[in-house]
Amino acid sequence: MKKIFSRPESLKDMPFHYCPGCTHGIVHRLVAEVIDELDVFDRAIAVAPVGCSVFCYEYFDCDAYQASHGRAPAVATGIKRVLPGSVVFTYQGDGDLAAIGTAEIIHAAARGEKFTVIFINNAIYAMTGGQMAPTTLLGQKTTTTPFGRDSEINGSPVKMSEMLSVLDGAAYISRVSMHNPANVAKAKKAIKKAFEVQMAGQGFSMVEVLSSCPTNWGLSPVKALKWIEEKMIPYYPLGEFKAPSEVV
């Protein structure tokens, strides 16, 4: 018998603390599989955010850092400048990356820092109790937009991939989704390409992953994936916003 599917080696064998049906777990697996396939476990360095995925430093079995809220790109900059041969990635949520850490992500991209960002966009602050995120959709109800997000009060959702893709330092920017198996497979390809762009020294790379939060959206895990497809993707279109013509 041949194993068709089993746990990637870069992922420590321990249960995740995530809620049932939360797609963080799938993204963790994809990143770990990419690390395994590129054979970079020994020089991989993870930078964990503040948010639901703060403990990802426990799950990725490589060396890791826990950064202050929003500052993972600055921490990753310090690491990669000291260790240019390492393969560095940050793993950040939408509050971490698109609100408090906006300056750090923009300037890391602008400088063309050679690390990879895995950006989880689930349109909500999950760990702190379902508050509005910068990526919360218009009309979406959260604990701090109980009547739905109103652009007159809260402005409109932030499209990070589109914003970052206009910067010269950004080499690879892609938005993918977790809403079905075909898109999970595409997400893996994008993550792999982002790591390859980093390793080729071509510049900053980021993969934005539309991810579900059944708990704070108040939906079943299955319905939450439908919600990504029906509500999020029309506002956050999938695809590569920037990619090198070839990965050297």
Partner: peptide, 25 residues
């Protein structure tokens, strides 16, 4: 390396990364 950061907030977190990587920073 001399690197001008986007803010003091970023600077000190770059220091965090570099120090964690073992450099005198």
């Amino acid at each position: 390396l001399y690197l001008q950061a986007e803010s003091e907030v970023a600077s000190i977190n770059m220091v965090f990364g570099a120090a964690g990587a073992g450099a005198r920073v």
